[in-house]
Amino acid sequence: NQASVVANQLIPINTALTLVMMRSEVVTPVGIPAEDIPRLVGMQVNRAVPLGTTLMPDMVKGYA
């Protein structure tokens, strides 16, 4: 099963992502693939992302 990117903490709206904010986990539904974590660093979320939430492509500005 493919691992997805999951929020390791509450990520406030418009926050630029850092490695410490994300972890990989096998979840359903599948979100952004864990191998894209390096690409996500520095990108901003367009909404608040609660701890444990799977990051979906539409949550990250410029990802989709």
Results as ranks from 00 to 15, higher is better:
Met22Leu: 11
Ile11Gln: 01
Asp58Trp: 09
Ala3His: 11
Leu19His: 12
Ala64Ile: 12
Met21Phe: 09
Ile13Pro: 05
Ile32Asn: 01
Leu55Ala: 01
Pro33Thr: 12
Ile13Arg: 06
Val45Met: 14
Gly52Tyr: 08
Gln44Asn: 05
Pro57Val: 11
Gln2Ala: 08
Leu17Gly: 00
Val60Asn: 00
Pro57His: 12
Gly62Leu: 13
Thr54Ala: 15
Ala48Cys: 03
Leu19Pro: 14
Arg47Glu: 05
Leu17Ser: 00
Pro50Leu: 14
Thr18Glu: 05
Gln9Val: 07
Ile13Thr: 14
Ala64Glu: 08
Val6Asn: 02
Val20Gln: 07
Val6Asp: 00
Pro50Cys: 02
Ala3Ser: 09
Met59Thr: 10
Ser4Pro: 00
Ala7Asp: 00
Ala16Arg: 10
Val20Leu: 14
Ile11Cys: 02
Ala64Arg: 01
Thr15Asn: 07
Ala64Pro: 09
Leu55Thr: 01
Gln44Val: 13
Thr15Ala: 08
Ala7Phe: 01
Val6Tyr: 03
Leu10Gly: 14
Val30Lys: 11
Arg47Met: 10
Ile32Trp: 03
Asp58Lys: 04
Asp58Phe: 15
Val60His: 01
Arg47Ala: 12
Ile11Lys: 00
Thr28Lys: 06
Glu25Ser: 14
Ala7Cys: 02
Ile37Tyr: 09
Leu40Gly: 00
Leu55Met: 08
Pro38Gln: 13
Asn8Leu: 10
Leu55Lys: 00
Val20Cys: 03
Met59Gln: 05
Gly42Pro: 01
Pro29Gln: 09
Asn8His: 11
Ile13Gly: 03
Met43His: 09
Ser4Tyr: 05
Val49Asp: 01
Arg39His: 14
Met21Asp: 12
Gln2Thr: 15
Leu17Val: 10
Ala3Gln: 09
Ile13Gln: 09
Met59Arg: 04
Ser24Asp: 07
Ala34Ser: 11
Pro38Cys: 02
Arg47Trp: 13
Val27Met: 14
Pro29Phe: 10
Gly31Ser: 05
Met21Tyr: 11
Gly42Ala: 05
Ala34Ile: 13
Val6Ala: 03
Asn14Asp: 11
Val41Ser: 06
Ala7Pro: 02
Pro50Ser: 06
Ala34Glu: 07
Thr18Ser: 05
Val30Leu: 15
Thr54Leu: 10
Ile37Met: 14
Val60Arg: 00
Pro29Met: 04
Ala64Val: 15
Tyr63Pro: 15
Val45Tyr: 00
